[in-house]
C-alpha cells in the first residue's frame, strides 16, 4: 500500500484502459496479422478492499478475458492493472509468480479445471509448496483445514477429482484458490456450471469466506439475480467495453444505459402480479463481431434510443452520481 499518492487508500485494484486483443493471422510460413479480436477494448474501474464487484454481460462480451487479463493469465495488449499500487502488467517471471500468492482465480468449469491425475491433497496443497508456505505434515494439516473450510470432508485428501460431484469439485477449486491466503479472488462464473440448489450453497460459501477472511472478489457472471445478491457494485459489459458501473441497488432500480435496461427487463420477477406487468425490452439483431466493432458507440446497432451522434463519437465514461455514490455510464443520452 505504498504508492498511489496516499489518496484512495481503500482501493485494492485499479484497472485503467485495459485492452486485450487477440490477433488473427494468415499465411502458412510467414504469418501476417490481418485483424484483431478486440475481446476487451479499453475498460477502467477500481475494486475496493473487501468489496465484491460483479461483472455481468452476455456470452462472449469479454468478461472472462477481463478476469484473466487482470491476473496476467493473458498479457494485456495495453492499459494498466495496479494491485495495491504495484503495476502487474510490467511484472514477469519470478516476480509475477510470487505476486500470484495475493491473487487467485476460481475457474468456471469445475470439471475441466482440476488436473485429473492429482489427488485433492496435491491440488490444494501444491500452491502451499510452490510459495513455500507449508510443507510436509504442516501442509497436510493446512489442506485438511481448507477442505473443512469449504465444507468438504477432510478425509477426501487422497481422492481424485473424478470421484466428486460438480459442486464438490467447485469447492475443491475454491479451497485451492484459498490455500495461499490471497487478498483478491477473481471468481469466473463459479456457479454457472452447477445445479441451482448447489449454486446457492457455493454463493453462500463465498460470502461466508469473504466475511471471515476479508476477501475481495471480482465476481464474473451472467445470472443477474445472483450477481445482485452477492455484489456490492456491479459493472455491465457489452462487446469489450463497460457501459455502466454503480452499486447494486442503484443499478437495479435506476439503470441509465439502454443496454442495462434491456438486460434487467429480461430478468423474471418471482411475483405473478408484477411479472405480468413486466415490459421486456427486446434487443434487435445480433452482437456485432468484436473483430470489427461499430464506429462510435458499440451498442448503437441494437440500441432502441440510438441518435446521430452515436455513430460518430465514442461516448464518454462519466460519473452521473455523486462522488460518494458513483454511477458511471457510457452513453450519449447523459
Amino acid at each position: 500500500m505504498s504508492s498511489n499518492n496516499g489518496s484512495k487508500k481503500d482501493v485494492l485494484l485499479e484497472v485503467k484502459g485495459l485492452k486485450m486483443y487477440f490477433p488473427i493471422t494468415k499465411g502458412i510460413i510467414i504469418q501476417k496479422k490481418i485483424a484483431d479480436v478486440k475481446a476487451v477494448d479499453g475498460i477502467s474501474f477500481n475494486i475496493k478492499h473487501g468489496e465484491t464487484l460483479g461483472l455481468v454481460g452476455e456470452s462472449g462480451c469479454g468478461k472472462s478475458t477481463t478476469g484473466r487479463a487482470i491476473l496476467q493469465l493473458y498479457r494485456p495488449t495495453a492499459g494498466s492493472v495496479r494491485f495495491e499500487g504495484k503495476e502487474l502488467t510490467e511484472m514477469k517471471g519470478e516476480t509475477l509468480r510470487r505476486q500470484r500468492r495475493e491473487m487467485q482465480m476460481i475457474f468456471q468449469d469445475p470439471y475441466a479445471s482440476l488436473n485429473p491425475r492429482l489427488t485433492v491433497g496435491n491440488i490444494v496443497g501444491e500452491p502451499l509448496e510452490v510459495h513455500k508456505l507449508a510443507s510436509g505434515k504442516e501442509r497436510q494439516e493446512r489442506v485438511q483445514e481448507l477442505l473443512k473450510l469449504v465444507g468438504l470432508n477432510p478425509y477426501f485428501v487422497n481422492r481424485y477429482p473424478h470421484e466428486f460431484s460438480g459442486g464438490q469439485r467447485q469447492r475443491i477449486g475454491i479451497a485451492r484458490s484459498l490455500a495461499v491466503n490471497p487478498k483478491f479472488i477473481v471468481a469466473d462464473e463459479p456457479i454457472s456450471a452447477l445445479d441451482v440448489s448447489i449454486q446457492a450453497q457455493i454463493v453462500n460459501l463465498l460470502e461466508d469466506l469473504q466475511a471471515n477472511l476479508g476477501l475481495t472478489y471480482l465476481f464474473i457472471a451472467h445470472d443477474l439475480s445472483m450477481v445482485r445478491h452477492i455484489s456490492d457494485r456491479i459493472a455491465v459489459m457489452y462487446l469489450g467495453k463497460l457501459v455502466e458501473l454503480t452499486d447494486h441497488i442503484t443499478l437495479y432500480e435506476d439503470p441509465l444505459h439502454p443496454y442495462t435496461q434491456a438486460l434487467l427487463s429480461a430478468v423474471p420477477i418471482p411475483d405473478p402480479y408484477i411479472e405480468e406487468k413486466r415490459q421486456r425490452i427486446v434487443l434487435e439483431g445480433d452482437v456485432p463481431s468484436p473483430t470489427n466493432p461499430p464506429s462510435g458507440c458499440n451498442f448503437r446497432t441494437r440500441c432502441p434510443r440510438v441518435m446521430d451522434i452515436c455513430a460518430e463519437k465514442d461516448p464518454e465514461w462519466k460519473n452521473m452520481g455523486t462522488p460518494e455514490n458513483e454511477h458511471w455510464v457510457a452513453c450519449h443520452l447523459y
Binding site: 484473466r68 491476473l71 500470484r100 482465480m105 468449469d109 482440476l114 488436473n115 501444491e126 510452490v130
Partner: peptide, 17 residues
Amino acid sequence: MSDYIRTARAKGLKERT
C-alpha cells in the same frame, strides 16, 4: 490448452513444473 493447465499457471507454478 486444457483448463487445468491454466489452473496450474494461476497457482503460480514455474512453467517447468
